[in-house]
């Protein structure tokens, strides 16, 4: 057994949903949000955790952080059963939601940090040291005395990341940390996370819709769909399995017949002087670009990354393993653990 920091063994989570079906009539229905999910994450790993909306990502994170109790299975984070010892675990983890904030909305940023200082019982010297380091790395110096409500989204995001790291958590859960950020802010956040992971060996679980987050940060990616793990491995492998394609958009000097591209690249759309070419995501665009530039009057070009949903959808179709949404209306009674 290696040093498994996060360990899930056949974890299930079933919710009972009551739906109104008529006047005073309710229908009870069980929804299996997580279905026999098993995986391990080693200490210091940085893992991308992706899947379509409603796949069970945030349910998993809620179980990992202890605010939700699994219906069945065994779950350990740092050797702790999260739902039993939520508060103890809370001292050792950090959580950042892209769309939510832990910061005190009406008060200056520094006030939230002072609160964290007390909340996590961070020794004074440690607090000062961490605060200084985070302020420098995340460029928060000018912002400490600004009320949080006046911060831009990118600034607030950096403020939230700092808040989650003041107490030196061993594991960091990130949910869409770059959502809505401009390119510069995205780059800054990613650079910081990479540094954090290499220098402090913080274990990071990253949930995102942005494939570039994963590409630039994670050597390993897990894909969840309908509560099941459908892929666990390198990102490159995901592209292969999902046969995902990038798109090269070229602007030519004038309207021309579809570009004669070397297979497997092919023109998928033509609109006036602009043409769209699809090519495998695992291949470099350089060869294709050079070839087109040599033979066509090229004005401009750009490359579009495949979006994560498309890759996953394609992968699921490709393997023919599209699980039906489990209705679960029959089955034996599910006991909600307390």
């Amino acid at each position: 057994m290696a040093d498994a920091f996060i360990e899930l063994d056949r974890i299930e989570k079933v919710f009972e949903v009551r739906r109104k079906t008529g006047f005073l009539k309710r229908e009870r229905r069980r929804v299996r949000a997580v279905d026999s999910l098993s995986f391990r994450v080693e200490r210091g790993e940085m893992v991308g955790y992706i899947g379509p909306n409603g796949a069970g990502k945030s349910t998993t994170v809620k179980m990992l952080t202890g605010i939700l109790t699994p219906s069945a299975g065994r779950l350990r984070v740092a050797g702790i059963d999260p739902s039993r010892e939520r508060t103890r675990l809370a001292h050792r983890m950090g959580v950042v939601f892209g769309q939510r904030t832990t910061l005190w909305w009406d008060l200056p940023l520094i006030d939230s940090y002072k609160l964290m200082h007390r909340m996590y019982r961070i020794p004074d010297a440690r607090y000062r040291e961490n605060l200084d380091r985070l302020v420098e790395l995340l460029g928060l110096g000018e912002l400490l005395d600004v009320p949080v409500r006046q911060l831009s989204l990118g600034q607030r995001m950096r403020g939230d990341i700092a808040a989650a790291l003041l107490h030196d958590p061993e594991v960091l859960y990130l949910d869409e940390p770059t959502i809505g950020l401009d390119v510069i802010s995205k780059t800054r956040v990613r650079e910081f996370l990479r540094q954090l992971n290499t220098e402090r060996a913080t274990t990071v679980l990253l949930t995102t819709h942005d494939l570039q987050d994963i590409e630039q940060l994670c050597s390993r990616v897990m894909v969840i769909d309908h509560g099941r793990l459908v892929y666990d491995g390198a990102l490159a492998g995901l592209h292969e399995v999902g046969e995902s394609e990038r798109t090269l958009v070229v602007d030519l000097e004038r309207e021309l017949p579809p570009i004669d591209a070397p297979a497997p690249a092919r023109v998928v759309r033509v609109e006036g002087p602009r043409q769209w070419l699809a090519f495998p995501a695992s291949e470099s665009a350089a060869g294709l670009v050079a070839r087109i530039a040599a033979r066509y009057p090229l004005v401009d070009l750009s490359v579009r990354e495949p979006d994560i949903e498309a890759v996953i959808a394609k992968m699921l179709r490709g393997t023919g393993d599209v699980p039906e949404p489990p209705p679960d209306r029959d089955a034996s009674p599910v006991t909600e653990p307390s």
Partner: peptide, 11 residues
């Protein structure tokens, strides 16, 4: 659902 943020805290 923002209540989740409060529950992640050791308080």
């Amino acid at each position: 659902g923002e209540i989740a943020v409060d529950l992640y805290r050791p308080v």
